[in-house]
Amino acid sequence: MKKTTTRLADGRELVYYDLRDDVVREEVDPRPLESTATSSEIRYDWLRDEWVVIASHRQARTYHPPADECPLCPSREGRHSEIPAADYDVAVFENRFPSLTGGPGPAFGGEVPDFPTRPGAGRCEVVCFTSDHDASFADLTPEHARLVLDVWIDRTAELSQLPGVEQVFCFENRGKEIGVTLGHPHGQIYAYPFTTPRTQRMTAAAAAHRARTGRNLFDDVLALEARDGGRVVVDAEHWIAFVPHAAHWPYEVHLYPKRRVPDLLALDEAACAQFPLVYLDLLRRFDRLFGTDADPTPYIAGWHQSPNVPDIREEFALHLELFTIRRTSGKLKFLAGSESGMSVFINDVPPEAAANRLREVATP
């Protein structure tokens, strides 16, 4: 992997990741862009014990542009995009409309204010998986998918070192049904200035399990799922993928390395080498569930990594969660009153049935 760092016209960082070492990146962004001026803040919710990001400038972000005006495609004569190059393998740049931006805000000293508010410090990046506008992650070759994994690892390493960053989240949203506003195959990375609510719940559960049993919660869950086998979708040498016993979504798969590690940086070469084959297999199974070329399966895929908190890192297990909001052909799972109002999910598809269906659609 060759890494080349440059700057866009407004000062944002752009990083090319190339499969070939002989690629030279000298393109300059010719657009007359002014320096980006964004501001966000995070507000503390007393009742939920969590932070909420307020980012009003995102109302102006690009929304479903025509394919020939895609800002993530390579630039060409007469039309300049966020990527000045005429082609690329993987490109990463700072989001022009970030939810989080800037350095850390001042910590509260002494008395906590009635309405705790801090600057929305952090960083949001866009990861363009390929220059091919009409492709998807599932269309990548194993070599290219491995490059994306190496990019996630590299970005996690860099963003974790930024002042004030506490957790890094690499994820992909695919499909208009999910809310995606750019059709080009891409993902995002958020570097949060706090530990996310989802991670807080998992780590609290892990701590309680350790106190109760003396064992690691994630290790026990993997052992139980492997022994039961009824919800296992893929059981490879270094990875295991299963539909969780209490899946929230109609088709939801959790992918774990069999050797517990806290984050992407701790994966060994054997796990990294096998990941593209396992992950591409899972994505293609999702597409074969009820997707078509004209209407591919919408999904969210995200890496759950340990925050930069020593005690948590010792207990946390890196894993990827992949799920679709489609519950059957032509029907979506909407978050209605129980889910949105009370966080009590009601799943229309039994996890065992979902796992069986995902096994059925494996490549012959």
Rank of each mutant, 00 (worst) to 15 (best):
His304Met: 09
Arg231Cys: 04
Asp295Gly: 10
His245Asn: 12
Ala241Trp: 00
Asp293Gln: 11
Ala273Tyr: 06
Tyr299Met: 04
Val278Ser: 04
His238Gln: 15
Asp295Ala: 13
Val261Asn: 06
Ala271Trp: 01
Asp228Ala: 14
Leu265Ala: 14
Asp295Cys: 10
Cys272Phe: 04
His254Leu: 11
Ala236Lys: 04
Gly291Met: 04
Asp263Val: 01
Ile300Glu: 08
Ala301Asp: 03
Val233Phe: 00
Trp303Ala: 03
Val234Phe: 00
Arg284Leu: 08
Ser306Val: 05
Ala273Gln: 12
Trp239Lys: 04
Arg284Asn: 11
Pro250Phe: 03
Asp281Tyr: 07
Leu283Thr: 04
Val221Arg: 03
Asp235His: 10
Leu267Gly: 03
Val243Asp: 02
Leu277Asp: 09
His245Asp: 10
Cys272Ala: 15
Pro257Lys: 01
His245Val: 11
Ser306His: 00
Ile300Cys: 12
Val232Trp: 05
Ala301Val: 08
Asp293Lys: 14
Ala266Val: 07
Tyr251Cys: 03
Arg285Leu: 13
Gly230Trp: 05
Leu289Gln: 08
Val261Ile: 14
His245Ser: 12
Val243Gln: 00
Val278Ile: 12
Leu265Arg: 14
Gly291Val: 04
Leu289Phe: 12
Trp249Thr: 01
Asp281Ser: 15
Leu224Gly: 14
Glu225Pro: 07
Gln305Tyr: 04
Leu267Thr: 03
Glu252Cys: 07
Phe242Lys: 00
